[in-house]
Simulated scan of single mutants.
Amino acid sequence: MSTMRAVQVVGYHQNLALTEVPIPEPTGPWDVVVRIGGAGVCRTDLHILEGQWAEKSGVQLPYTIGHENAGWVHAVGAAVTNVAEGDKVILHPLITCGLCRACRSGDDVHCEASAFPGIDTNGGYAEYLKTSARSVVKIDDALQPADVAALADAGLTAYHAAAKAARRLTPRDRCVVIGAGGLGHIGIQVLKALTPAELIVVDRNPDAVELAVSIGADQGIVADGNHMEKVLELTGGQGAEVVVDFVGEGGATGEGLRMLRRAGDYHVVGYGENLDVPTIDLISTETNIVGNLVGSYNDLCDLMILAARGAVTLHTAKYRLDDFQTAIDDLDAGRVRGRAILIP
């Protein structure tokens, strides 16, 4: 049996390990094996190593990590007709059943019988990955797997939240984006493509704010302690109709809610701390607090159209698969602009 290199979680609170494992083969009729062209390195991967997902995922160690994947179709099961060997594809992060109520509604993220490569089964920090026909999206010839891999999860999550936020935004409205890093810089481009509202971006890092303005933010504010006042000033003292929070920790949620106007929508995307909201404030202002998970298969198809048009481009830092530890360390230390990508 031929083998491949794979980066695996061998224990929580310890480093990932590079190992040799068998190359996956299609066993079921709908299986698709993909040769990985790029795998995104995500903050969730750091959370996995810290054991934050251990109970939720119930995964057996060791297993291969990595849930943002793109590449070329290597082999397909007997029933697969939507892709063929050699096709260039990006992978929806979930393997879904297609039969439950959520799947039938196109809300496949909430599938009742899903598997999640990189979280609860083998992922893409490897040379090959097994997924299903329902999870592969063919990508435009002009796009390269290593350039779009992180759109599979970071991009898809940002798209999902931005598309939900955009449904209520009009030209008179303002939308505050908290965090212009890996997810935020994609969310800003999606909002720019989907809504005429004014975009105000807040980030601690002056470089990230500069990037945000260069890719479409109307206002960039460095979170230096006076940022709340600046946002209120820009919104006539009222706050913004929508806040999309790509940080969700370190005090961002309290500030995010304070930047919101009455009857506003507060979208939570980044996570890490608890929300503390007096219920009297919720009812008196009619605030909507909206959770955002990753987007659906249809969201990914829409996002790939924006990518092919050049409306969404990913800023990436590329690493060889063997240099996975450097990529993880760089992400942890905040040295990555945009997204880190592993290339086998």
Rank of each mutant, 00 (worst) to 15 (best):
T3Q: 12
M4Y: 10
A6P: 11
Q14E: 15
Q14P: 05
A17Q: 15
T19F: 07
E20F: 06
P22W: 08
I23T: 09
P24H: 06
P24G: 03
E25C: 11
P29L: 06
P29H: 05
W30Y: 12
G37Y: 00
A39R: 13
R43Q: 11
R43K: 14
R43M: 07
L46V: 09
I48F: 12
W53R: 13
A54S: 13
E55W: 12
Q60I: 10
H67R: 13
E68P: 11
N69G: 02
A70W: 09
G71W: 08
W72D: 07
V73S: 06
E85A: 01
G86R: 08
G86C: 05
L91I: 04
H92S: 02
L94D: 05
I95T: 05
C97Y: 14
R101Q: 03
A102P: 05
A102Y: 15
C103F: 10
H110I: 10
A113I: 01
G118H: 11
I119W: 11
I119L: 13
G123V: 00
G124D: 07
T131W: 06
A133Q: 10
R134L: 05
D140A: 15
D141R: 14
D141S: 09
Q144G: 12
P145A: 09
D147M: 06
V148E: 13
G155F: 14
G155V: 00
A158T: 04
H160I: 06
A161S: 07
A162F: 09
L169V: 13
P171M: 05
C175G: 10
C175D: 07
I178S: 04
G181M: 00
L183S: 08
L183E: 03
H185R: 06
V190P: 04
T195M: 07
P196Y: 06
L199W: 11
V202R: 07
V202S: 11
S214R: 14
I215V: 01
I221R: 13
I221P: 03
V222R: 11
D224R: 14
H227L: 02
M228D: 10
E229R: 14
V231T: 06
T235Y: 01
G237T: 02
G239H: 11
G251K: 09
E255M: 07
G256Q: 00
L257C: 00
R258P: 03
L260S: 02
G264H: 02
D265W: 14
Y266I: 01
H267C: 02
V269L: 04
G270D: 00
G270A: 08
G270Y: 00
G272C: 08
P278L: 08
T279N: 07
N288R: 15
G291H: 01
N292L: 02
V294R: 09
G295E: 00
G295M: 01
G295N: 04
N298E: 15
D299T: 01
C301S: 13
I305D: 14
I305A: 14
A307K: 12
R309W: 12
R309D: 15
G310F: 13
G310I: 13
V312Q: 08
V312T: 06
K318T: 08
L321Y: 13
Q325C: 06
A327F: 04
A327W: 13
I328Y: 15
A340L: 10
L342T: 07
